[in-house]
């Protein structure tokens, strides 16, 4: 039982990490309908961002967010204006090709800038473990989970209770309807892209406190995040969180009780099974027919 609790705790902590990683994708894909296959590489860049800030300023990477968030937002808006805007009305194949191109540019750029070596940030709490009732929880994951909870709370209240948040939800559901009530959809898309990149920044910073970054780390992240977002239901933040938790806990349980070589395989099977029962994901609402 003790072990089971430990597995669940670890699963949930990893789950919050996964949720954090997938949130940016969930927002950008859910709102803009942009199929972003460079998502993992965005996270990779954000990890380097956290690494650089703490390298040069000696600050805790989380404090570095005060610098990274505004930059990420502006980058998101810029990226929307320059690239995403041209893509959203293009066929899906164009999204895939363009964002794959972006992904290679990012990986190659990171290789040139940072070399292929592994980098990470050591904080005073890197090795600290919270030990209670025979359960071990490490501080980097605790802080990561706290960051995730804060971000998710902020995000949900923003989407629910502010005008801009409502507009984002509106635009993601019904672009034409949003135009008809006077919403400048491109402005809202740009804001959503900015917010998406901010989420990615938080996840990158959180990851860099317990993971090492290298230019191709995003490849695995990308598949993981896509599976989470599709599993949870496109455009649903609670869905993304639940999807992340399911996958992380499943990995833990399969790793312990079944077979550690099959963790990835197990969540893939789970993914296919859930999509067979609920094709639009756990929290997905059936798409409206026009």
């Amino acid at each position: 039982m003790e072990i089971f609790i430990q597995l669940i705790i670890n699963g949930c902590l990893t789950g919050t990490t996964y949720a954090l990683m997938a949130l940016g994708l969930s927002i950008i894909f859910g709102t803009l309908g942009l199929i972003n296959f460079a998502h993992g590489d965005f996270i990779m860049l954000a990890m380097y961002g956290g690494f650089l800030i703490s390298l040069f300023s000696g600050m805790d990477p989380y404090l570095g967010l005060f610098i990274m968030l505004p930059i990420s937002f502006v980058l998101g808006v810029g990226l929307y204006r320059v690239l995403f805007k041209r893509l959203i009305d293009a066929p899906e194949e164009a999204h895939i090709i363009a964002t794959f191109g972006l992904s290679f540019v990012f990986q190659y750029g990171a290789m040139l800038l940072f070399s292929a070596e592994y980098k990470s940030v050591s904080t005073d709490y890197s090795a600290d473990v919270f030990h209670i009732w025979n359960q071990y929880i490490d501080y980097p994951h605790i802080y990561g989970a706290m960051a995730a909870v804060i971000l998710i709370a902020l995000l949900i209240s923003f989407l629910r209770y502010t005008n801009t948040g409502r507009a984002i939800r509106a635009v993601s559901e019904q672009r034409r309807g949003a135009m008809m009530i006077g919403i400048n959809v491109h402005k809202i898309y740009a804001i959503a892209a900015g917010i998406g990149l901010c989420c990615i920044a938080v996840s990158g910073v959180s990851l860099i406190t317990f993971e090492s970054v290298h230019p191709t780390i995003g490849v695995h992240f990308n598949l993981l995040c896509w599976i989470i977002v599709v599993l949870g239901g496109i455009g649903s933040i609670p869905g993304t969180i639940v999807g992340a938790m399911i996958i992380a806990v499943l990995e833990m349980l399969v790793g312990y009780y079944f077979e550690p070589t099959l963790t990835t395989f197990a969540y893939f099977i789970m993914f296919l099974a859930i999509l067979m029962i609920r094709p639009s994901g756990i929290f997905g609402i059936k798409e409206r027919r026009a």
Partner: peptide, 17 residues
Amino acid sequence: DAPYDPNTMDFSSLILK
């Protein structure tokens, strides 16, 4: 004798085992 999936992000379950 424990082989594992190298893509695992968190090895806690294996370690506990």
